[in-house]
Computed example of a mutant assay.
Amino acid sequence: MKNLITTFFILIVISGQLYADNPSAAHKKITLNLTDTSEILVKGYIAPIENTGSNFHVEWDALANLRVAEPEKQHPTSVFQSFLPNTPVSVGELWALDATGVLTLLKQLHPKPNLFLHINAGDSYGFWACLRAYNAQYADIVFRIHAEFRLEDGWFTPSQFTGHLIIDRNREKVAFFEMYVPEGVINFDVNWKQDENDSHFHTTTGFCSKIELRAGNQELLESIKFTETITQEVAERALIHKFYKSERINWVPPEQVLEMVEAQQKPIHAVSIDGPLVDESC
């Protein structure tokens, strides 16, 4: 996945410091399940693309006309079972999602989703979830999915899909669901094969203000008082570690490094990077 940024910067790391893969403490494990048989109305939306680096959103019809495949669709509750773990989990614990349900939901956005990215250096593939919080009635699951859409003559690759699945533990039903591409200066890249006789793809990046699926009212998520919890930031950090080993390094701002070197008596490793290390495909 690619969010190309041409800024030049330097990161400095103190040798030997890595973040743990899993921030979970020794919390009580709970079982998550969905037995409700009702259907869930999911609304989908893809905003018109108004910005790409090389004006592809004007010149390439497939990108200019990219819209949600089904603005509304009834999904069986069983689709969301794919987001749940097969065994009891504690707050902060991670698990891989089942591809079947993920693909079903992505097809509401576009008929040709792909979870096995066409450009993958080994650190971009996957779909993971984390139990962020729970109380006696609700559980909040945060997830990160890397996927793309096959367009006519090319590929549309968002930076990531993230979101929340709120489970009503007592009634074992979906209380709220959202899956979306986060905002940013750049939040997708595209590969366009402009000439069918040419084996090469032309690449650029761009911004789309809204790509999302949603069911229920977000006010529920904001109003719940959880008893066992980690912050959203901690959950997101745990998830990104499943994709990018570079994120496990404790990168140190230059203004702090000399103080840390003196205190820890460790060597400095200075790394020069032309662009970000995450959510990139080239």
Rank of each mutant, 00 (worst) to 15 (best):
L213E: 09
A238H: 06
A235N: 07
T35Y: 05
I46E: 05
L165F: 14
V102T: 11
A96Y: 10
A139E: 08
P276F: 06
H27Y: 13
E70G: 00
N65T: 11
A20W: 11
L117H: 01
H118C: 12
K242A: 14
A147C: 05
H164M: 01
G184L: 08
N51Q: 13
F201P: 03
E178V: 02
V181I: 08
P253V: 09
Y125F: 12
D61E: 13
Q256D: 15
I145S: 05
A129Q: 04
A270Y: 06
P182A: 01
F161H: 05
N250E: 15
F176K: 02
R214N: 13
L239H: 07
P88T: 12
T100H: 08
R214S: 07
I12M: 07
W192K: 06
P88A: 08
V181S: 00
Q256V: 04
V58G: 03
Y138T: 03
A136K: 13
S78W: 01
V271S: 12
T231A: 05
Q137M: 11
R248A: 11
R144I: 00
V190E: 07
T7K: 15
T227Q: 06
T87D: 15
A69L: 06
N217G: 02
D123G: 12
P253T: 01
A62R: 07
I273N: 11
N120R: 09
R237T: 08
I240E: 14
D195T: 04
S90H: 08
D140F: 01
R237I: 09
K107A: 04
T227H: 03
R132I: 01
F161W: 02
K245A: 06
L277R: 13
D195N: 11
I5V: 15
I119R: 11
L84R: 07
V58I: 14
E93G: 04
R171M: 08
R132A: 05
R67C: 00
K2V: 13
N55W: 11
